[in-house]
Write a protein that binds this DNA or RNA. Structure first.
Lengths: 159, 159
DNA sequence: TCACATAGATATGAAGTATAACTATTATTA
DNA sequence: TAATAATAGTTATACTTCATATCTATGTGA
């Protein structure tokens, strides 16, 4: 480390050259911005990131069971309970007894839930478009491909 | 939603089409994999993600103050204290009194700390290379550009 | 000198996340 | 069929992460 770097630090600049060498570091920093931003957009709807994800997944998959939802969202079952309590308490979903298995509950959105999900999704789309303005669709798709490779392994194998 | 989707759910498949429409959702899922993977790689070194980031930043910027490090890592000052306690207790860094300001501590890596940082960085690089195998350097750079746009806003302005 | 700002530390609380164990049902099998 | 095991959802609990307020010692500026 040279004098320039030492001097820069004295006026408040700290280098992160080594960390910048990792793709994961860039992704982590971007993710922090995305998460803060998303929660700000969702706040007026009374939703957080997890409650939004849960609601949208229930709207997309009406009738699914809690264990299935927990799997899809990578949430532990006990933690999902309070999230669903919140959505049910807000009148956005119902827990309906399923006749064929009296242990289970089928999760269904209410009309209010479907409408709120639609509005929140529109708001999120608008916000993401703002964050990504000027980004070519091809580049966006490329990024998605890379994220999927990271998630599922090279070649896109589903693990 | 059609019969096919309803049938698929019965055998355990839950769709996330709406969420997949968000770049942030893909990034979040990739980040979860990266974080789990990174922590696994760091475990043999006795490090976690935050302690590794802190150690590397101290190695790259010897003599920096705690407040500077907290800023660089976007960690609150009180939370950084325990992280540094951990690194200092492991003999990886020292908190040295700075003569010009007796309130402050200059953070410096020990030889052991520098060596551990070097080894951990090498391990992380190897692991990230494994996760990203087959990814063209141009694509990797494109992803980094997009992450920086998300973090700093369009045009790469530093906010 | 006196008021105020800053560096680091301590205490504390909120939120997210993970595990064990309970109730009620369903499935298995001896 | 009776006994056993497995499953869905829940409760209780603890651990980690993250944020805020406050304290001390020290430094800065009117």
């Amino acid at each position: 480390m040279g004098d320039a770097a030492r001097k820069a630090r004295e006026v408040g600049v700290v280098g992160d050259a080594t960390l910048r060498g990792f793709l994961g570091y860039h992704i982590k920093r971007a993710m922090a911005v995305l998460q803060a931003d998303l929660n700000k957009v969702l706040k007026p709807f009374g939703l957080r990131m997890v409650t939004y994800s849960a609601l949208v997944t229930i709207v997309d998959n009406p009738g699914l069971r809690q264990a299935q939802l927990a799997d899809a969202l990578a949430i532990e079952r006990p933690n999902l309970v309070v999230i669903l309590d919140e959505l049910e308490g807000a009148g956005l979903i119902t827990r309906d007894k399923v006749p064929s298995d009296r242990r289970a509950y089928a999760l269904n959105p209410t009309l209010k839930g479907r409408r709120l999900a639609e509005q929140a999704t529109a708001a999120n789309r608008a916000d993401e478009a703002r964050l990504l303005q000027g980004l070519a669709p091809a580049d966006r798709n490329r990024v998605i491909e890379v994220m999927n490779q990271i998630e599922h392994g090279p070649g896109g194998a589903q693990s």
